[in-house]
Simulated assay, not measured.
Amino acid sequence: MLNSMTGFASAKGAHGAHEWTWELRSVNGKGLDLRLRLPDWIEGLEPALRARLQQALARGNVNLNLRVQSSDQGGRLALNGAQLDDILAALAEVETRALERGVTLAPSRPADLLTIRGVLETATADSDTAPLRAAILADFEPLLAQFLAMRQSEGTALAAVLNAQIDRIAALTDAAAEVAESRRADMTATLQKQLARVMDNAESADPARISQELALIAVKSDVTEEIDRLRAHVAAARALLSEAEPTGRKLDFLAQEFNREANTLCSKAQYAELTSVGLDLKAVIDQMREQVQNVE
């Protein structure tokens, strides 16, 4: 069963005097890139959430945001270091680009930065955050389940598209095999005419050498191996689509192999109808490669 790398989930939770909001989203990525924005004052929260995400996901650029607020009047304000770092990095880039264009900006004031949403958060006055951490971690599970369900739903749709494309590739491969067989007589007649013309105009030519050259031409125009490999790739792709484990990387590699065989088929065609089939193959394979980029 395929999973997409695209997903989104949001939720709200509460424990005692604390309320929080979740937002979990992901897009395509070559590997697993986790970016977490969490309250720094809740000890042990980030490693626990990071470990859970690493356990549940294999690939994708994943962003997890958690904002915690307290209605406790005895609470205190705490600085969200991760949020501040992102803001400072953005400011530095803005200033650098401004200098490159000769634009002078007014200096940023700390008070202005503190008014940006998320930089200051309300923290608990109680130094023991273990109960709150436990409640938040428990509340994360349904959020993650919702997120995974969306990725699975997207993956089911992807599987249907990919199966249809693989069926099309299989049909075009069979068509290429039929065209290659039908052109065999034409290729043989052409080679015989070329041989007769060469022999008539080259009295001193070595017949063995000529035979070798013609045999080489015949080998270079034979697409049997390409068709066999395309059929093997079709079988491998169908097997990968039925696996339970993440197969996005393998499918991406297989799509490249499909494309290589289609290119070779076109270069060997020497026959308009076979070239047309090869170009249709390349078009479907390119569409398949685009879809594969979304697979976990």
Rank of each mutant, 00 (worst) to 15 (best):
L241M: 12
D40K: 07
A138Q: 04
E243N: 15
A123V: 02
A239M: 09
Q212S: 06
G13I: 00
A269G: 11
A255C: 07
E243G: 11
R97W: 10
I87H: 05
L105E: 03
T6L: 08
L84V: 09
G248F: 04
H233F: 14
L230F: 07
F253Y: 10
E46Y: 01
G16I: 09
S4K: 02
E273Q: 11
A149V: 10
A78G: 05
Q146G: 09
V179G: 01
H18D: 13
V234K: 01
V62L: 13
D206W: 10
E257Y: 04
E203I: 12
E225W: 06
D128V: 06
E141Q: 09
P110W: 12
M5I: 02
A170I: 08
G248V: 04
R52K: 11
M150D: 04
E19W: 08
R37Y: 10
N263F: 04
T224A: 14
A78K: 00
N3Y: 13
N65S: 15
E273G: 01
D33G: 12
E19A: 15
G74F: 00
L49S: 00
M1E: 11
D228P: 03
E121A: 01
R151I: 04
E261H: 13
P142S: 13
L38W: 14
I169L: 06
A189E: 04
L279H: 13
R249C: 06
Q54I: 01
A283L: 14
V179D: 06
S127K: 11
K30Q: 11
